[in-house]
Design a protein around this nucleic acid. Structure first.
Length: 285
DNA sequence: CATGGATACCAGATTACGTCA
DNA sequence: ATTGACGTAATCTGGTATCCA
């Protein structure tokens, strides 16, 4: 199985289908994923542009194309309806995106050459669904902090970390409990006000600066995690509609069973196992 | 009211440390 | 014991918002 992800021009196939030069037609946010099934006997993926056919499965490309073409460069997009984004405000009313799903199986004409041209080859199926996107203003700032708060922050903050034991940039590993607690807090609100920061720092026995940095890093990692899990769930559920492909990433805590997230690899293993069992059953019969 | 300095926060890029295979 | 890959805590830089004189 081959999974390709790319951000850019959604009119082009995802990377493992794409043999053409990169397109710079526009800079709008577009998100493409491709899933190739049916590895060749030599273990490599099929090259559809050279006319190689998949064994029995079809490659699929999922295009996510925002309806509103030009969002401000620094405008953060947040998916509404996700539990940890409760503070998201929809500042621009009616802003939404339509995502299209393109099942892209190269036509015979495309096999001869250009794989990246047409949006919808004759034998591809296209469906689309609207999905709400909230445009979140980050301007919900908190006004000037009290002197105590500023002092508390600065004490354990920039430039003073190396005061401790005279060690510069001593990296400390957060404990499992600390990470879990921070993660839970992040699900409730992805940004912190000074009071929340101090409370968290006190509760976890960390410096406020450490809490602040953790949230900054978490926000930086967040889009990658969302894309990864969101894409995988969609693709898996498309290909295995009768199987529970949920990774638990988008579930509420209450819905998630005991161990929380399922590792994507575990889901794939389940799927492989299920297929093997099916095959064995058929062979036995 | 306009302006500029100080302050705080953030995103993004980068560095560097700890862990593990 | 060593090494390289990887995850992530921490730092740096630049931009923006707010407050206040």
């Amino acid at each position: 199985m081959e999974l390709a992800l790319s951000l850019g021009d959604a009119s082009r196939p995802a990377s493992f289908l794409d043999k053409g030069p990169p397109s710079r037609a526009n800079d709008d946010l577009e998100f493409r994923v491709g899933l190739g099934l049916g590895l060749a006997g030599d273990g490599r993926g099929r090259d559809f542009c050279r006319g190689e056919q998949p064994d029995s499965d079809v490659p699929l490309q999922l295009d996510l194309i925002p309806l509103s073409p030009s969002l401000p460069r620094k405008t953060p997009l947040q998916f509404r309806g996700l539990p940890w984004l409760a503070e998201t405000r929809n500042d621009s009313a009616g802003e939404s995106a339509r995502f299209s799903v393109v099942n892209r199986l190269p036509s015979s004409a495309e096999e001869a050459g250009d794989c990246g041209g047409a949006h919808s080859p004759p034998n591809s199926t296209v469906s689309s669904f609207p999905m709400e996107l909230g445009i979140c203003s980050v301007s919900g700032r908190y006004s000037k902090r009290s002197d105590n708060e500023v002092d508390a922050d600065r004490d354990g903050s920039r430039g003073s970390d190396d005061d401790e034991n005279g060690m510069a940039r001593k990296k400390l590993r957060l404990s499992k409990e600390q990470s879990t607690f921070l993660e839970e807090s992040f699900k409730e609100h992805s940004t912190l006000n000074p009071k929340q920061k101090l409370a968290l720092a006190k509760q976890l026995n960390l410096r406020p600066r450490q809490v602040e940095v953790w949230f900054q890093n978490r926000r930086a990692r967040y889009p990658r995690d969302v894309l990864y899990h969101f894409t995988l769930e969609i693709l898996l559920s498309l290909f295995f509609p009768n199987t529970d492909c949920s990774l638990g990433f988008f579930q509420d805590e209450a819905e998630a069973d005991g161990d929380g997230l399922r590792e994507p690899e575990a889901v794939l293993r389940d799927l492989d196992g299920g297929e093997q069992e099916t095959a064995e059953g058929a062979a036995g019969a």
